[in-house]
Amino acid sequence: MELDLFIRYGPALLSGFGITVLCWIVGSLGGMGLGFLIACLYQWSGSWGRACLQAYIEAVRGTPFMIQLFILYYGGPSFGLLLSPVQAGIFGFIIYGSPYFAEIFRAGFQAVPTGQFEAARCCGMTEWTIVRRIVLPQMLVSITAPLTNFMIILTKETAILSVVTVPELLFETQTMAAETFTYIEPFLALSLFYWAMVEFTSWLGRRVERHVTRHQNRQTP
């Protein structure tokens, strides 16, 4: 084990980690937003709209992330979409994550009884107010765990971005391994970074879960 390797390659690994975190956060928040939009559209559209959304969900869920990235990054220029690797990575993440997030949100919508929607409409609430004040607070209780779960899955999917030359953590690690002919040290560092990310996400998930379920633990006066 040569520790001075870490001093020499530390900055590269850290910048790779930064790009991993950037792609992960922007990509998964974007995916969450798009997924929420899809779930909302699904909730309020007719059978044709639903069929289209379902087709999108199935198509994205049925194909590997790597192929989606290849279509975006290598196939994109064929229809005038020129992306830098990091842009392609982030867009790919948004598209890849959106159907999974949409399904999680859809399950959340279904957990709210239809009677509440009807009652809220009778009170004269707009659809957006219903989502914001009635559906979301209840939905968050049941979807925080699956959301955290999927965020953790996405932390690991960032490794695939290295294949389209995004200079993220795995890419930098492979460079380090190739330049120094060491394999144990780079992969050890890599595992520690990913482990830290996963632990952080699950810690955050637990905190959010405690926050959204606080009404259940409140002592009755």
């Binding site: 999917e157 695939i160 795995l170 394999y183 996963v198």
Partner: peptide
Amino acid sequence: GVPLLVQLLAFFYILPY
């Protein structure tokens, strides 16, 4: 906890070691 791509690479590079 470790990405599969990393596992695959480790399997391919570290096992021959």
